[in-house]
Amino acid sequence: DESNKPILLPNESQSFERSVQLLDQIPSYDTHKIAVLYVGEGQSNSELAILSNEHGSYRYTEFLTGLGRLIELKDCQPDKVYLGGLDVCGEDGQFTYCWHDDIMQAVFHIATLMPTKDVDKHRCDKKRHLGNDFVSIVYNDSGEDFKLGTIKGQFNFVHVIVTPLDYECNLVSLQCRKDMEGLVDTSVAKIVSDRNLPFVARQMALHANMASQVHHSRSNPTDIYPSKWIARLRHIKRLRQRICEEAAYSNPSLPLVHPPSHSKAPAQTPAEPTPGYEVGQRKRLISSVEDFTE
């Protein structure tokens, strides 16, 4: 099969070098950035008060330690540790928490760990991170309901609301924008112990962030949302095809390698009803078989 044979790379090609550099910018793992907010007593309706908090309760602090690993920003190499735009020179604080497994990295933009500057009256330095995160974990210690939209931002799609209760338990629920209701189930609340709260809140936030990324990708319907490693695979396959075309153009005697095509017509299947918005969006999480067989 010609399409699977190794090909020689061009010795000097600026377009090839640019493509390789672009490939280096696509990590081999999925990345997520999640905002974390603490809401104190009497702050449920005040964005400024929430963003001005420099610490929270003892249970909130224990919750943070379970979310991930504490890292010092100045020691991080952005090409190895995903920071979601946090500055490593102290502009966004000294520490944050991050978490990773074999296929993804997540960083938490924690408002109480970011510096509260006197010259920044409206807390814009914090909002440029927190307001651009799709998902926020809100530790609501106010005793009042927290409403979506209290923290203004164009991309605040989903809130994971943590409400501490007695007996070391917590109520965990989801809020989302109306255009996200087909992807996020907000109907079920959970009672979770303090011990298990970081794991549950983190998983709910990661799932909500993946759904938000799919939702946000609708602005470019021709580019369905893939995982990062599938995006790398697609980029490599496009690069291979372009090299083959350039080689055939410079030397017409060489065969032009095309991806294999299936001449056999697909079997006719009964027509199915058109899937609704929710089903269609969830299918976009699934990769096409052509990603692996071309």
Rank of each mutant, 00 (worst) to 15 (best):
R218T: 14
D145H: 06
S219D: 13
K178I: 09
P10E: 15
A35P: 02
I161L: 07
A201R: 00
N132P: 04
H122M: 12
D30H: 05
S3C: 12
L239D: 12
C169N: 05
L8D: 13
G56S: 01
L285G: 12
V39W: 01
G280H: 07
F199P: 01
I137A: 00
K178E: 09
I191C: 06
N156G: 06
G40K: 03
R282Y: 07
N4M: 07
D101K: 01
I137T: 00
F16L: 13
S52D: 06
Q14M: 10
S46L: 03
P198E: 00
A271G: 09
E91W: 05
I230H: 06
K126D: 04
K190I: 15
Q25T: 08
D30P: 03
D120I: 05
H258M: 10
N196G: 04
Q94T: 11
L64G: 01
T116A: 08
H129K: 11
E12K: 06
C169W: 15
L8K: 06
N170T: 03
E246S: 07
T222D: 13
E17Y: 07
L64R: 01
K80G: 09
Q281P: 13
A189W: 14
N4I: 12
S28N: 13
N156R: 02
A35R: 04
F63M: 06
A205M: 00
M204A: 07
H129N: 07
Y97H: 04
R195I: 07
V172F: 00
P266R: 12
V36K: 00
N220W: 04
V188A: 10
A201C: 08
D118C: 12
I243N: 07
L37F: 04
D125L: 15
P27I: 04
H55R: 04
I224H: 10
T112L: 00
F63D: 00
C244S: 10
N11A: 10
Q281N: 13
A201S: 04
E278W: 05
S219P: 03
M114C: 06
G182W: 08
S44A: 13
T65G: 12
T96K: 04
P273G: 10
L113F: 14
S227E: 08
E181D: 03
S187A: 08
C89E: 13
D133I: 07
G84H: 13
A189L: 14
R240N: 13
D30C: 05
D141V: 01
E294W: 04
G84C: 11
R59H: 00
S46W: 02
S253I: 10
K121L: 13
Q213N: 07
G90V: 08
Y29D: 04
Q241N: 12
K126Y: 05
K152N: 14
P115D: 04
N140S: 00
T293N: 13
L174V: 14
F16N: 07
Q281W: 07
A205I: 00
Y38R: 00
L37E: 01
V172M: 02
E144A: 07
H262T: 15
S261H: 11
L233F: 07
G280R: 08
D1Y: 12
Q213K: 12
L113W: 03
V162P: 00
F108D: 01
P164C: 01
R177M: 13
N220P: 04
S253L: 06
V289K: 14
N45Q: 09
G68P: 01
A201T: 10
V200L: 05
D92H: 07
V184P: 02
L22R: 14
I224F: 12
I224N: 08
V200Q: 02
N156K: 02
